[in-house]
């Protein structure tokens, strides 16, 4: 107890320390300490001068608990102005997610499944893949997972589309400016390493849990990273000689971007899109915690209600979706590569 008192007194803070007591909420540890007798401390176990320890010696110093309260208060203070800006900006995301969900579910299965197969054929031209996707969907429908699978797929489509729409231009700007790259790389690193649940905490404060944009934003923040990174990389990797030729023949910046840089970076951009799709699939399960419909809900049900079978089968359905999405995007990537190999 008396460990740091003398040190603080030596700094001439005695008066300030005794001036006012801090009357924040009492923590459990303090209650326990009050109940027990005060222990003598030897020099061996001098505690680290953390906020809590210093607070004991000098009450005006805030405790750690007060500090986290402060962070919370600061967030709550900026919440309303932030919400006023973000709410209208992100409203279209809700419309897109809801609209897409409604559309996917409004179409009867005998229309939607052939449409999906047609899409697979259009981007891959592979009969085997179309067959695999057909069998997978028939299986999912047969075990009554058609609706959640379609919901999950709908969310992934919307979030991937928006991620590409945002990520590709950001990646292009990043490739053009080294300064922007220096600023954005740590941000992207953070988005990718931050535990996914941590995104959800401030989002829950900002938006209502019933709004679809809540999970939409969480998924996009997580999934946009690879497409930004790989667009940046792809454009930076375009053969310098070809860029020089484009300059030497007097291409405008626009002609160079659309006619040379983007086409030549396309294999890398598509690899980024593949990663983005896989990451939104990973996030869509976690997003079920904040009301995202789909297969994740069933997995969650498996955990909450210990329904092992439900959890495992829907988990398997997620793996199946992942394989389908991965193979289809990789096959279309391979098609791009063969048409423009060097």
């Amino acid at each position: 107890m008396a460990n740091y008192e003398s040190a603080l007194n030596a700094l001439g803070l005695e008066e300030w320390c005794s001036s006012e007591a801090n009357d924040g909420p009492v923590t459990m540890a303090e209650l326990l300490a009050r109940a027990g007798a005060e222990k003598e401390t030897s020099a061996w176990d001098i505690p680290f001068p953390s906020l809590d320890t210093l607070n004991k010696a000098c009450p005006p110093i805030p405790r750690a608990r007060d500090m986290t309260d402060g962070v919370e208060q600061a967030f709550i203070d900026i919440k309303n102005p932030l919400k006023a800006v973000l709410d209208p900006l992100t409203e279209p995301l809700s419309w897109a997610l809801d609209g897409s969900l409604a559309l996917f579910q409004a179409l009867p299965w005998y229309v939607l499944i052939p449409l999906l197969l047609l899409l697979v054929w259009a981007v891959t031209r592979s009969g085997r893949l179309v067959g695999f996707v057909a069998v997978s969907f028939l299986f999912l429908s047969f075990v009554d997972l058609y609706v959640p699978a379609i919901q999950t797929l709908s969310i992934i489509f919307v979030c991937t589309a928006i991620s590409v729409l945002l990520g590709v231009p950001i990646g292009i700007l990043m490739a053009r400016s080294n300064t922007l790259q220096r600023i954005l790389v740590p941000v992207l690193d953070m988005l990718q390493t931050l535990p996914t649940f941590v995104y959800l905490i401030p989002l829950i404060y900002l938006f209502s849990v019933t709004e679809s944009k809540l999970y939409g934003i969480a998924i996009i923040l997580y999934a946009v990273v690879p497409v930004v990174r790989l667009t940046n990389l792809g454009i930076r990797l375009v053969d310098r000689d070809v860029i020089e030729a484009a300059d030497a023949f007097g291409m405008t910046a626009r002609q160079k971007l659309l006619g040379v840089q983007i086409p030549l970076a396309l294999p890398n951009i598509m690899a980024g899109v593949n990663q983005t799709i896989m990451m939104s699939l990973a996030m869509v399960v976690i997003a079920s915690l904040v009301s995202a419909p789909g297969l994740g809900v069933l997995v969650l049900q498996g955990i909450r209600e210990l329904e092992l079978g439900v959890g495992l089968v829907s988990g398997f359905a997620i793996v199946l979706l992942a394989i389908i999405l991965d193979r289809v995007t990789k096959a279309s990537l391979a098609r791009i590569n063969t048409t423009q190999s060097h």
């Binding site: 000689d241 070809v242 030729a245 030497a248 023949f249 040379v260 048409t339």
Partner: peptide, 22 residues
């Protein structure tokens, strides 16, 4: 003006060809 000159008054051939691969 520079672009105009490169487009109309000058052309260039490169050691590594620098053709558009796509």
């Amino acid at each position: 003006q520079l672009r105009e000159m490169r487009q109309r008054r000058m052309s260039m051939v490169f050691q590594k060809f620098a053709l558009l691969p796509h």
